[in-house]
Design a protein around this nucleic acid. Structure first.
Length: 873
RNA sequence: GGGCGCGUAGCUCAGUGGGAGAGCGCUCCCCUCACACGGGAGAGGUCGCUGGUUCGAGCCCAGCCGCGCCCACCA
């Protein structure tokens, strides 16, 4: 069956997303809607740089939420006629990707070491070519309107050029330097990692108390440690300067058991006199805290643990070559033998672990590359302080500023093979170090052979330049001119520092402008049971399965509706709500499109494929509604458009989704369509015009959130001139706002509801039309029809009053039920009257409350009293 | 240790000073010619606890109890 074929509308009572979504996505891509020309200015245009998913990644719920939000904004902006670019690409994800390929190699019985660096990197590339595109295909399933023709990769040629340019310039400015420094060594990946890649976990250890004899005395200093093996690297013992127990010992020495090294006893404020004995062993080589104390006091730095997670030569013959765990046992045994251990107790504390490998971090001093951050941070702080970059919700602004204020040097080197190899060359002949953007031939100083640095850069180093490197920087490309700074970034708060802060710093430093105007920090979707969604816990919900089951529109709607500024549990019900909405849209559209009378030329309906990819105007003309209900629905529609638009612009996706849902379902379907059905079946042109106009505007309004079903329905709309994707987004039209009509119809709806409720209470048969008489003003036509009442001027005795309506006696009504109902209503009214009287009887309320609140209360009292009087016998 | 946030209907969540809401679930009625993934009508909350401010508090303030998250070098 062809698209736009009326038989489809006539026959299909259910909307089936699967076939529709694949077909429409192909049409959009074919038309090139998502591939804008690089024209205009960043102010006029709209652009988003996608948070690049890892090449190893599969679409997870975070991507799906993030993508739904970005796509809603991108599509809205595109429909508004702005030149819109959503930059897509993937991240080479150093550690993750290397780990995946290494795992494959192990399965093949080989290893990266066996292959050698070049062959290994080759191997990762071929893995990337084969599997790396997976996640991009998955974004398409979601309906993401990214520019797939401009896809980037953090290791593609141009990108590497940008990375090297950045490195060189930061080096030349003196920000990047090489130093022996304490780093978080990850024994799992055999690499240094940054502070931000470390997570602390509660662990139960044994706290050993070890006695260090004081030289030339029979006193001992007892120190406590959970890592006895590191005592081999101790170079001091510290006490608090104010601790009177030890004042006389400061300046003296201890003798390190097992080793015999003389340790100076020093005073340092870091030592807490309350903890343990108040004496702290200082191991500058293996503890971050001690490292700093050591540097401050000029202590020797000894390393007894090597990067291979074994004891080094400096640990002494007895322990050299042991693993750290073995060494711990051996050291404890040896100390015990010497009677040096005075206590052992279980001790729970938090310990750093590698976010990547899950291994316990080993603090080590090693030669690494660092980037000083202070100078880069200053303008990035100012940009957020002045709201040049707006962070919403605003509480994250403060979190950002506080962190930036305490920023520390960033360890940017990683001992991996997959990544941007650091663009530094060493000349062994003359000792020269060369930093260059392009591989140099020979040493500039002596002409000798050059050897490139082995380490690669932290993956986040390249991610930090994502918004401009993807646009072609450092070249002055048209893309850069048209789309930088980008407009919007949405992110999870966990990468606010890891990524967002660094992009702001790099953006200001290199292209010289903020990377994006607004940063929206979205909520985290937790598993259904409130735990974190995680693959290893098995708590993840697969977005692709949800798409298979309910359609991409349903998932998108569900995610937007459940999103919030606070974390929320994944809600199947919200996705189902989205699926139901898609189905409702389809069926309401069938009703309208199959029954509307229109005399326009329909020949264009099926010619979507012939349309040029341009903005298309509507063929519908604005109706001039006459009847109150027509004016009512169009007025409500315009209010909804204004409100939903406002919500989307404020990144309040949840309320935007809920509002358009309830307008469409409750007001348009439940009331308006039911009200106008007779007119529609009669083929009245006026109501047709109204409905087609309303349908078109609702579809356009909803398109950014639910692109597929709205586009599909649009294919059948007589006003169609091309795809909805490039149709103008509705602007609220104030001339259609009609408060009077709203009040009139709302009153009719209220009366209808009360009449229906009354019927139900007295258990009147559902199908029977009951006789009634109107007192005063005749109710609107639809009231009787929808509530199933027949209004007549004479007729029988009134048995009940429902508002201005007198229900007349008839065989179907149970007189006892009516009496009970009447009494219940009286009781309700009495309590309302009492409430209002109480309030108004309070002098202070009348004196202090705003006049309109008091007036409203008086009005209620009057109404309820009048009705009560009416009902009194 | 510091910071942020949460505790509202059975469930998941809205609701930043004037009479407690939505979706799902539940009960009753209806297969009425768009839709039973539907329509209609209902039941169901001392808004964590205790004080305070106010004519008026789910909403503001203080304290407490429970639960999350982020940051942090107490061995």
């Amino acid at each position: 069956m062809r698209v736009g074929d009326r038989r489809m509308l006539e026959d299909a009572t259910r909307y089936e997303p699967a076939e529709v979504e694949r077909r429409l996505f192909a049409e959009w891509i074919e038309a090139g809607y998502f591939h804008p020309e690089a024209e205009g200015t960043p102010e006029e245009n709209f652009s988003i740089a996608i948070p690049p998913p890892n090449v190893t990644g599969a679409l997870h719920m975070g991507h799906a939420l993030n993508g739904s939000m970005q796509d809603a904004l991108a599509r809205m902006s595109r429909m508004r006629g702005r030149n819109t670019l959503w930059i897509l690409g993937t991240d080479h994800a150093g550690i993750a990707t290397q780990a995946v390929v290494e795992k494959m190699l192990r399965a093949e019985g080989t290893s990266r070491q066996e292959l050698g660096r070049d062959a290994f990197v080759e191997r990762v590339w071929s893995w990337k070519e084969e599997y790396g595109a997976q996640i991009v295909e998955q974004y398409k399933r979601l309906g993401a309107s990214c520019d797939y023709e401009r896809e980037r990769f953090t290791l593609d040629e141009g990108y590497v050029k940008a990375v090297y340019r950045v490195f060189k310039q930061l080096f030349d400015k003196g920000y990047i330097y090489r130093d022996n420094y304490m780093v978080n060594w990850d024994p799992g990946t055999h690499s240094a990692i940054s502070d931000l890649e470390v997570e602390n976990r509660e662990v139960e250890d044994v706290l050993y108390s070890i006695d260090y004899p004081v030289e030339g005395s029979d006193r001992v200093l007892t120190v406590a440690t959970v890592r006895p093996e590191t005592m081999l690297a101790d170079t001091a013992v510290a006490v608090n300067p104010g601790d009177e127990r030890y004042t006389d010992l400061v300046g003296e020495h201890c003798v390190l058991p097992l080793v015999g090294r003389r340790l100076p006893i020093i005073a340092d404020d870091h030592v807490d006199p309350e903890f343990g004995t108040g004496a702290l062993k200082i191991t500058p080589g293996h503890d971050i805290n001690d490292f700093e104390i050591g540097r401050a006091n000029g202590l020797e730095e000894i390393g007894v643990i090597g990067p291979d997670w074994r004891m080094s030569e400096d640990a002494g013959e007895r322990f050299e070559g042991l693993t750290v765990a073995e060494a711990r046992e051996a050291v404890v045994a040896a100390l015990r033998e010497e009677g040096r251990i005075s206590a052992e107790e279980p001790y729970t504390h938090s310990v750093p672990f590698s976010h990547r490998s899950g291994e316990r971090i080993e603090p080590l001093i090693s030669l690494q590359w660092f980037c000083r951050m202070d100078e880069l941070a200053a303008p990035a702080i100012e940009a957020v302080e002045t709201d040049a970059v707006r962070i919403v919700p605003s509480q994250w602004k403060r979190v950002y500023l506080e962190w930036m204020g305490e920023i520390r040097p960033w360890c940017i080197s990683r001992q991996l093979w997959w990544g941007h190899r650091i663009p530094v060359w060493y000349c062994d002949a003359c000792g020269e170090t060369l930093v260059a953007e392009e591989t140099p031939e020979r040493c500039g100083a002596c002409g000798g052979e050059l050897r490139q640095e082995e380490d690669v850069l932290d993956t986040w180093f390249s991610s930090a330049i994502w918004p401009f490197a993807t646009l072609g920087w450092p070249d002055e490309t048209p893309e850069l001119r048209a789309f930088y700074p980008t407009s919007f970034l949405t992110t999870a708060r966990e990468i606010l520092f890891l990524w967002v802060a660094r992009m702001i710093m790099m953006g200001l430093e290199f292209p010289g402008d903020i990377p994006f105007r607004d940063v929206y920090v979205h909520s985290v979707i937790q598993a259904r049971d409130g735990r974190r969604m995680s693959k290893s816990l098995g708590t993840g919900v697969d977005p692709l399965e949800e798409i298979d089951r309910h359609g991409a529109d349903a998932l998108r709607f569900g995610l937007l509706a459940m999103s919030s500024t606070q974390d929320v549990r994944f809600s199947d019900a919200k996705v189902q709500q989205g699926a139901d909405l898609a189905n409702k849209l389809w069926n309401a559209s069938r009703l309208i499109l199959l029954n509307c009378k229109f005399n326009q030329d329909q020949s264009h309906i099926n010619s979507a494929q012939d349309q040029v990819p341009a903005r298309v105007e509507s063929g519908t003309t604005k109706p001039t509604p006459r009847t109150p209900e027509d004016r009512w629905i169009l007025s409500r529609l315009e209010r909804t458009i204004a409100s939903v638009t406002e919500k989307l612009e404020a990144y309040d996706f949840a309320h935007a989704a809920q509002e358009v849902y309830s307008f469409f379902w409750s007001e348009l379907c439940d009331w308006y369509l039911e009200i106008v059905k007779p007119r529609l079946y009669e083929g009245e042109e006026e109501v047709s015009a109204n409905l087609l106009w309303a349908l078109e505007r609702v579809l356009a309004l909803l398109h950014p959130m639910m692109p597929f079903v709205t586009e599909e329905i649009w294919a059948y709309h007589p006003a169609r001139r091309g795809h909805l994707t490039v149709h103008p987004f509705p602007e609220p039209d104030g001339s259609l706002i009609d408060a009077e009509a709203e009040a009139a119809v709302d009153a009719g709806i209220d009366l209808t509801r009360r009449l229906r409720a009354w019927r139900d209470l007295v258990e009147a048969p559902a199908a029977t039309v009951l006789p009634a008489r109107a007192e005063g003003v005749e109710p609107q036509e639809f009231v009787g029809r929808l509530a199933r009442f027949r209004f007549e001027d004479d007729g029988g005795e009134p048995v009940a009053a429902v508002g201005p309506v007198r229900v007349l006696a008839s065989a179907e009504i149970d007189a006892a039920a009516v009496r009970a109902r009447l009494e219940a209503r009286r009781e309700e009214l009495r309590s309302e009257v009492a409430r209002a009287e109480g309030k108004l009887g309070n002098e202070r309320f009348v004196a202090n409350a705003p006049a309109e609140v008091v007036a409203e209360e008086r009005d209620k009292l009057e109404r309820y009293s009048a009705e009560l009087e009416e009902l009194s016998e």
